[in-house]
Structure formats: structure tokens, C-alpha cells
């Protein structure tokens, strides 16, 4: 009976104390640890690539008449970091924040509000402003073609009209 206990004491002495004193010392975070994500609203385009990539639908898009909201719900996020990988602007940063415990689900939400561009022909709102600005910068060097700023539906109509006019000569 005494022998195993003695053995245990020697093992315990070798190993020492392993208990982390967590609230009183820093948590055991490795370099690869991923926590909640942070969306930088000043550079996000509202392209929605992150929403497509998110496996748990923690990132969703809420649309209304003239606003598009990118909603991040940390409660459902599995901290995989796929959104940060696919984000074309690097707006998503993976932080090491994990102390997210709360009694209100609302606290876990992060909302980025995007105003939408208004179509000059039909007045419908269709695409987030920063995304439109980027496309204009990228595609139209110099002047912007008139139907670049209109919504897809009106653009189709304008295009067809133009074609008919060309054919009719």
C-alpha cells in the first residue's frame, strides 16, 4: 500500500504543479490561436465573399430598401478564419479575443452598414457604394460610361434599345 503512494509522490515531484492560474495570469494562447473576427468598416466593400465562405452562416447579409447590412454573429462563429482568407480587401482581421461570455445574445453582434447606390433611371437601390466605386475605378479608365451606374435591369433595357437603334440605322 505504501509503495504505490511513494511512487506517486516521486512522479508528482518530477512533474511539479501544472495548474494554470488563469484569471490571475495570461491565458495559454498559441500563435495560431484564432478568436473572434473584427471587420474594418472603412475598407469593407460589402462584396459578400465572406458570407459565401462562412461555413456556419455566422456572417449574413440583411438587405432592406436602401441599406445593406453585413451582420456578424460571434455566437455562431467557429473561428475558422475562412472569411479572412477570402476577403479581397483584407477588411477582416482575426483577433485573439475569446472572452466573449455574455448574457445577451445581442452583445455578440457586429453590424456594418452599407448605403446602396441609387439607379438614376428607375430609382431602385442596387449595390453597396464602395463596391460600385471600386468597379468604376477598375473598369472605366477616365470617363465612366453612362450605363455603368444604372441597375442591371435598366442596363439590359438600355443595351437592347441601343442595339435596336444600331440595327434600325
Amino acid at each position: 500500500m505504501v509503495k504505490p503512494i511513494l511512487k506517486l509522490i516521486t512522479v508528482a515531484k518530477e512533474v511539479g504543479v501544472v495548474t494554470r492560474k488563469y484569471p490571475y495570469e495570461s491565458p495559454l494562447l498559441t500563435e495560431e490561436f484564432r478568436g473572434k473576427i473584427e471587420i474594418d468598416a472603412s475598407i469593407c466593400w460589402g462584396c459578400g465573399a465572406c458570407v459565401k465562405a462562412c461555413p456556419s452562416n455566422a456572417l449574413t447579409i440583411r438587405e432592406s430598401m436602401d441599406v445593406m447590412e453585413l451582420v456578424y454573429f460571434a455566437g455562431r462563429c467557429i473561428f475558422c478564419g475562412r472569411c479572412a482568407d477570402v476577403c479581397p480587401t483584407g477588411a477582416i482581421r482575426v483577433t485573439k479575443e475569446f472572452e466573449l461570455a455574455t448574457d445577451e445574445l445581442e452583445d455578440l453582434e457586429q453590424v456594418v452598414i452599407h448605403r446602396k447606390v441609387k439607379c438614376p433611371i428607375c430609382g431602385k437601390h442596387f449595390v453597396p457604394q464602395p463596391l460600385e466605386k471600386y468597379v468604376c475605378e477598375k473598369c472605366a479608365k477616365g470617363e465612366i460610361p453612362t450605363y455603368m451606374m444604372v441597375c442591371p435591369e435598366c442596363r439590359r433595357k438600355v443595351g437592347v434599345k441601343k442595339m435596336i437603334r444600331c440595327k434600325g440605322g
Binding site: 488563469y22 484569471p23 491565458p27 495559454l28 471587420i39 468598416a41 472603412s42 469593407c44 460589402g46 460571434a74 475569446f98 472572452e99 466573449l100 461570455a101 455574455t102 448574457d103 445581442e106 452583445d107 455578440l108 453582434e109 457586429q110 453590424v111 456594418v112 452598414i113 452599407h114 448605403r115 453597396p128 457604394q129 464602395p130
Partner: peptide, 25 residues
């Protein structure tokens, strides 16, 4: 650590840190 933190919040030893963020693009 998050579970211990949650327990502490649950029994009122610690305050919660997170709150809802709304940002304009």
C-alpha cells in the same frame, strides 16, 4: 479559459466585455 470566464460572469464575479457594435461603412 473562456468557460471559466463564463462561469465567473454567470455568478457575477466578473463583468462582461463584449457589446454590440454597429459601424457605418
Amino acid at each position: 479559459e473562456a468557460i471559466i470566464y463564463g462561469l465567473a460572469v454567470l455568478i457575477g464575479l466578473l463583468k462582461k466585455k463584449v457589446k454590440k457594435e454597429v459601424k457605418e461603412a
